[in-house]
Design a protein around this nucleic acid. Sequence first.
DNA 1: TGCTTTTTGTACCTTTTAGTATATTATACT
DNA 2: AGTATAATATACTAAAAGGTACAAAAAGCA
Lengths: 192, 192
Amino acid sequence: MVRLREFDEEKVLQAAMRVFWEKGYEAASINDLTSAMAIQRPSLYLAFGDKKQLFETTLRKYTQWHAAGIRKKLESNSSVREAIRAYFEGLVDEAYDGEGSMGCFCINTMVELSPHDEKFEIITREHQMYLAVLFQETIERGIRSGELHQETNAKALAQSLVISLIGITVLLKSRPDRSFVDNAVEVSLSLL
Amino acid sequence: MVRLREFDEEKVLQAAMRVFWEKGYEAASINDLTSAMAIQRPSLYLAFGDKKQLFETTLRKYTQWHAAGIRKKLESNSSVREAIRAYFEGLVDEAYDGEGSMGCFCINTMVELSPHDEKFEIITREHQMYLAVLFQETIERGIRSGELHQETNAKALAQSLVISLIGITVLLKSRPDRSFVDNAVEVSLSLL
DNA sequence: TGCTTTTTGTACCTTTTAGTATATTATACT
DNA sequence: AGTATAATATACTAAAAGGTACAAAAAGCA
């Protein structure tokens, strides 16, 4: 029965994600969203619920996409050191190439919403924990292959890398001298 | 000549700072501010300019206060390792003692405003650079005293500590298991 | 073809937003 | 004491916010 959606749900959600990612939850207005999504206001409410629900949907999409991207990059290099180095250096390169990067939607949400909304506290925490597991598995692979010392504390090291990742991503927003970030990356990698 | 202010500028600025610190720039309304400051709306505009100007004033106050606090803590212990450890552990303790901590106003601003407003990009960048200098001076003191190796790269290490500080402060907003943060602190301190 | 059902577009609602006009009050100086 | 001056309080404005009512439109099925 009946009339079907005229828009591609996947595409409009991606447009909404981009708006929330760039502006944050509060600063993104419904008008910003409907413009970017190219749908009418009632269609938004009908298809995705209110602003908070739409935000949650886009954030969940983001965390899945983000985690998959990191996993792929970490698995793409047989050398664990090189894989992790490439990931960190890629982040930095992106930030200093032309227009700069957009940072991390999940980190933005941790700062803006997690302290005031338990739902987002949980979503963001679980994402960071998942990233830590990805790093840990990568480090354990390096231990098995003999690339890293047998006594390496994979879990603690992985958690420390997640902390560095967050710190770098946030600091990049203030556009510091590249050497600042390069040094920090080098020190972090020296732990491996 | 004439009628004098009925309010203590220092106190009301502190109240405003607290509002912006807790809620962020967008989510803090003028009503929130005037309530917390216990002044009337036109008094706010007359004394402090518009919302953005007031925000900037409170942020500058914050960075001064924050830097002075860190400096004092780092100088308060003759052992450099112990001073830095105490600082990081104090942060974590605060976050897990009862109601949790409020994070860092400057970091919040880096995430919310720096990407969209050059003025805040500069203020937040300079604050982080200043913190890095404070850590660097502390590390150099440790090198001079013989507590740290002569070959220690004080600058790079200090910058890495600032990155860790940011990462920990942000991650704490998602209330992760304490062991996560404890491990990351331990790894960071192992670099000293 | 016509009926049912869901999406769409227009227009609207209420509340809240940042910011201000104005009149009143209180003080310091003449 | 009276006057000039600045801060206060009340009340307001215009714009924008999030959200919705309702009628028109479109598609599957009888």
